[in-house]
Design a protein around this nucleic acid. Structure first.
Lengths: 153, 153
DNA sequence: TTTCTAAATGCTAATGATTTGCATTTGCAT
DNA sequence: ATGCAAATGCAAATCATTAGCATTTAGAAA
């Protein structure tokens, strides 16, 4: 990113979170920073737009974005999700507190759910899945948000 | 389908499950039957292959498959799901007992989970989402199955 | 049963997200 | 500073899914 004021702190954040043996190209650092700053999971094209329009003279190819999202995912520091209401995958940094969303099937608004109802999922499931090592889960709650509901009256 | 022996019973099943005001074309009935007979959720191309290779002289266009999957979904009798390990959407008839899957991230095996851990999801979530009307949910458990785990030793 | 019409189909071409090939550039270890 | 594997940019290729349009068909009406 071009914001000099924050450059230092981002650098140290990157330093702490960078995967082992990962080349630090400026493209990679910038993709990481965009994801780090985003409140919401982002699609590849949203990331691409952020990188290419925010006053930076750098070039960021679409293929670079996709290749690095895949690389970050393999390295285990981001999560890829395909929501059933969208046709693009979305990506977010793995934070300590992971999130799920309630998604309105009418307006596609995504409302984060504060608590994960699957804290004890492993106990719940492991009984019926002997030998299966659970590494994660995906959950969406689908429905109609209050705004869309009232519009339909 | 071409199996005369079962034709009668499929007809009555179709009769009972057919959406209101839906034209009964042989293509639609056959797509329904393929889904009805499948143990697993199927992708559009799997359905297409079943229709076009199982000895039938009928023609089934890809666009017909997609159009009718969408129509069935709108009519509320099938479910479309995009699994995070696959790049095709999969479809299944809504059965009384809905299912979730534990998916191996290595071999992509799908293991049905017997119980839905979200029976009381609405209570759980509704508190934090006032006015949101829950109509459904998507859940995947991701991990490594026992076979893939033992291979990696 | 025959006629009629909107809806459904098959075909092919278009779309849109994601991937790939390849020549060029760049981190980073020596 | 040098060298090379890894990363990049660009453009073309893929792959799932959708749309356009001329033709066919289900099912209501005559």
């Amino acid at each position: 990113m071009s914001n000099k004021i924050h450059a230092e702190s981002y650098d140290s954040i990157i330093e702490r979170n960078w995967p082992e043996g990962f080349k630090k190209t400026h493209q990679r650092k910038d993709i990481f920073t965009v994801l780090f700053c985003s409140e919401e999971p982002m699609s590849a094209s949203e990331i691409y737009d952020h990188l290419n329009f925010e006053g930076s003279k750098e070039k960021y190819a679409f293929s670079t974005v996709y290749r690095n999202l895949l690389a970050f995912e393999k390295a285990g520091i981001i999560t890829k999700t395909i929501l059933s209401t969208e046709d693009e995958a979305v990506y977010e940094l793995k934070k300590s507190n992971h999130k799920h969303y309630a998604i309105c099937t009418v307006c596609h608004k995504k409302i984060p759910i504060k608590t994960c109802p699957l804290h004890d999922i492993s106990k719940f499931v492991s009984g019926s899945l002997p030998g299966f090592e659970i590494t994660g889960h995906q959950l969406e709650i689908l429905g109609i948000c209050s705004e869309c509901n009232s519009k339909n009256k």
